[in-house]
Write a protein that binds this DNA or RNA. Structure first.
Length: 272
DNA sequence: CGCCAGGCCTGCACGC
DNA sequence: TGCGTGCAGGCCTGGC
């Protein structure tokens, strides 16, 4: 589920509650995520003080001084603050218990997420060191996307979802940004000119920002750290809207598949 | 029952 | 030879 806007919404929601707080312990109920949760997480985290809450692409980075807890929410993960004494459910695999009593809970029904502990620079971890520019970085601009795509004959949509090109863009936001730029998702990336790359970067930033402003998108199970659903799904132009009218021209939105993933576009507004 | 779902890694066959 | 590419499959549960 979570793409960059949902992870960022989670980060912002948790930040004020976690910064400078001491961790009492971690409760691991199920280690069987995509990568096994470290067995000794309670010892690694116990008494650590959270210095900073960061994000790289779709990864959440909890800086504990002596090391960093890296979380990825996979398709169905969610981090939330336990209110009251809510008993752990079937898919609540991990709790971080703070010294002040606050409990941060990781729920991930499909278990595609992961929890890692790294010492030293977390950005050097093999899973993070190949990630491309953050979409909001100033240096991520049209000319960078243009040069990064010259050798890529794959479709622009699949290239946008390649984290080595740009961080954090998944299926929803690739579809939405391409619509906003009027680019056909099946167009070969290396056939897109500089002007359109510039437009695409502008619309990637714009779409992600609008989604963050809306608290992310809530499909199926996603809710933010405060338990509230985001509502960017109400602003989807094309995603999930096959055969509904294009918001710009009224032509029915077309749904196709690209590399096992659902793609949605307007056949009139988006050209090759 | 089969199919679908927001992620991402691996391995394979293929063509240049 | 060695890329990049396009697939398929795997990791899981739940909803329709």
């Amino acid at each position: 589920m979570p793409e960059l806007p949902e992870v960022e919404t989670t980060r912002r929601g948790l930040e004020p509650l976690l910064i400078d707080q001491q961790i009492r312990t971690a409760i691991v109920r199920n280690r069987a995520l995509r990568v096994p949760v470290p067995r000794d997480l309670p010892q690694l985290l116990g008494d650590a003080v959270i210095r900073n809450l960061g994000r790289r692409g779709k990864y959440l980075l909890i800086d504990c001084g002596r090391g960093t807890l890296i979380l990825h929410l996979g398709m169905s993960g969610r981090l939330w603050i336990v209110t009251g004494n809510a008993p752990a459910g079937k898919h609540d695999h991990l709790d971080l218990v703070l010294a002040n009593g606050t409990v941060v809970r990781l729920c991930d029904p499909r278990r595609f997420g992961l929890v890692l502990w790294v010492c030293g620079d977390p950005l050097l971890h093999p899973l993070l060191c190949t990630i491309g520019p953050e979409p909001f970085a100033e240096h991520f601009d049209g000319s960078l996307l243009y040069s990064a795509t010259r050798t890529r004959s794959a479709s622009i949509k699949q290239v946008l979802m390649d984290s080595r090109i740009v961080a954090g863009i998944g299926n929803i936001y690739a579809n939405e940004a391409l619509f906003r730029s009027g680019i056909h998702p099946a167009m070969s990336a290396n056939r897109i000119g500089l002007k359109r790359c510039q437009s695409l970067v502008t619309n990637i930033k714009k779409t992600l920002q609008l989604a963050i402003d809306a608290g992310g998108s809530s499909l199926r199970d996603y809710v933010g750290s405060d338990g509230l659903a985001g509502n960017f799904q109400n602003q989807f132009m094309v995603y999930g809207r096959a055969s509904n009218p294009c918001p710009q021209c009224g032509t029915p939105i077309r749904g196709i598949r690209q590399g096992q993933r659902a793609t949605f576009y307007c056949p009139r507004c988006q050209s090759r």
